[in-house]
């Protein structure tokens, strides 16, 4: 990591001191799902998504240095649980960034809705509350800008169609 020395305490400060208040209380809805799913529309709290089997991925990312350990639920599990039927999922972020992700991605790879990085919960002041993380280091074909754009951070909704 070649960050200038001065930035390290600031980043630490940002995550430790100021990020914590930004992590939603567990009763807050952090992810909404819509489209071709059972019930048509579902809103999930942090506690809800934590109920799914938690999965770990160690991988590098395109915006950080070195491998990072992510932990979260498999998107595949979530979609299966909601009886999602469709070809693509439209993922939308807090800033209204949106992208279509083929559902086959979740079948072929263990794509995770990460809730924490390096054991620290993801904050909405960083890439939280949920960051879509691909096992980039395990599959060379994922080391491509066309997959990088599917790593949606600050994920707020998934629309199955």
């Amino acid at each position: 990591m070649k960050l200038p020395t001065i930035s390290i305490p600031l980043v630490v400060l940002a995550t430790v001191v100021f990020a914590n208040p930004a992590i939603q209380a567990s009763e807050d809805r952090i992810l909404t799902l819509g489209g071709a799913i059972a019930g048509g529309k579902v809103a999930l709290t942090r506690a809800d998504v934590l109920e799914f089997p938690q999965h770990q991925i160690v991988t590098t990312t395109s915006v950080t240095d070195g491998p990072q350990t992510f932990e979260g639920f498999l998107i595949r599990d979530l979609l299966q649980d909601l009886d999602a039927e469709g070809d693509v999922v439209v993922a939308r972020a807090l800033n209204d960034y949106q992208i279509e992700i083929p559902i086959s991605d979740f079948e072929r790879f263990d794509v995770v809705g990460a809730l924490s990085m390096e054991g620290v919960p993801l904050s909405s002041r960083d890439k939280g509350p949920i960051w879509i993380v691909y096992p980039r280091d395990d599959h060379p074909e994922l080391q491509d800008i066309r997959y990088d754009t599917r790593w949606v951070w600050q994920l707020v909704s998934l629309h199955v169609q």
Binding site: M1, K2, L3, P4, S7, L10, V11, A14, F18, A22, S62, V63, T64, D65, L94, N95, S123, S124, R125, D126, K127, W153, Q154
Partner: peptide
């Protein structure tokens, strides 16, 4: 939160190094 998250992003990893070369970090 969004503004802070973007400022955090450009201070991470490769982005930080890039800005340092431009003297903007």
């Amino acid at each position: 939160d969004l503004a802070i998250s973007r400022l955090n992003l450009i201070q991470q990893g490769p982005q930080a190094r890039y800005l340092e070369t431009l003297g903007h970090l």
